[in-house]
Design a protein around this nucleic acid. Sequence first.
DNA 1: CCGTATCCCACATGATACTG
DNA 2: CAGTATCATGTGGGATACGG
Lengths: 138, 138
Amino acid sequence: MTAEDGTFDTPGHLSVTTGADAHRGDLFSRDCPTRQLLDRIGGKWVSMAVKVLGDEYPGEVRFAELKRRMPGISQKMLAQTLRSLERDTLVARRVEATTPPRVHYRLTDLGYSLTEPIAALRDWAELHMAQIDAANAG
Amino acid sequence: MTAEDGTFDTPGHLSVTTGADAHRGDLFSRDCPTRQLLDRIGGKWVSMAVKVLGDEYPGEVRFAELKRRMPGISQKMLAQTLRSLERDTLVARRVEATTPPRVHYRLTDLGYSLTEPIAALRDWAELHMAQIDAANAG
DNA sequence: CCGTATCCCACATGATACTG
DNA sequence: CAGTATCATGTGGGATACGG
C-alpha cells in the first residue's frame, strides 16, 4: 500500500551552494508534473475558461461571449488567462480580420483531453465539498 | 454538445477591496465546487503532502519525517499546510504526549479518497506536461 | 470589439528566531 | 521534536484608462 510511483520524488528546491555549477542542474529544476499542472490550472479563472470552452468543443467561443459566460472576470484577466492557455497549446485562437475584429477561441484536442481529469476533480468536489465546508464551519 | 451540468453557473466574485470595513451584503457568491477544491489543493505543498501521506495510508507519518520527505518546505509551511488539511478533515493528527512530543499525521478516509482525482491529474500531467513545456520553450 | 498598460494591494510563501 | 511569531517580499489579480 505504499508508493508505486515516483511523482514527487524530486523536490523542486535547490539544495546545495557548494560549487557554482552544481551537479548537472538537474537537482532543482525538475518539478513534479502534478505540481506543474496545478500551477497552470489552479489560477482563478483557468478551470472556468476550460469548462466554458469545453461545453462548446469543438466549437468556438468569441472573446465577448466568453466574458459574458464568466461573470466577474475582467478583460485583463480573461485575456491573460487565454494567452496562457494558448501558449500551452490548450486553446487555439482565430482572428477574423473584420472591423471591428472578431476573435474566436476553442479548446485544442489536448485542451479537451484536460477536461477529463478536471471532471474527476469536479465529481469529487460535488460529492465532498459540502462536508469539508461543514467541518470548517463547525 | 453544450453544457449538461451547472458547475460554473455562479461567478464567485467578491467586490469589496478595503477588507477592513466589513461591508455587509457583500456576499461571496456560491463558488463552484471545482474552484473551491482547486483553491484547497492548489497550494504549493498540499498535493505533495497528500501524496506522501497517501503513500503510507492508512499508516501515519511524523512531522519531522514529513518534513524530510518534502524537501524545501519550511516548518512554518508544513505546519500551516497540515493545519489546513486537518481543518478540512482530510488529515488526522495524533499527539504522543512524550518528551519531546511526537505528532503523527495520517490521511482520513476522505483524504485518501482525494488521491483518486489527484491521480487523474497526475496521469494526465505525466502524459502531456512535456508537450506543454515544449510549446512554451519553442 | 479586443485587447494592452498602469497602478495598487492583499496574500501566499519564505527566512529567521523563539518556545514548551 | 514540533511547533508559533515576526518580518520581508514576489506576485496574482482587480480597477481603471487607453489604443488599434
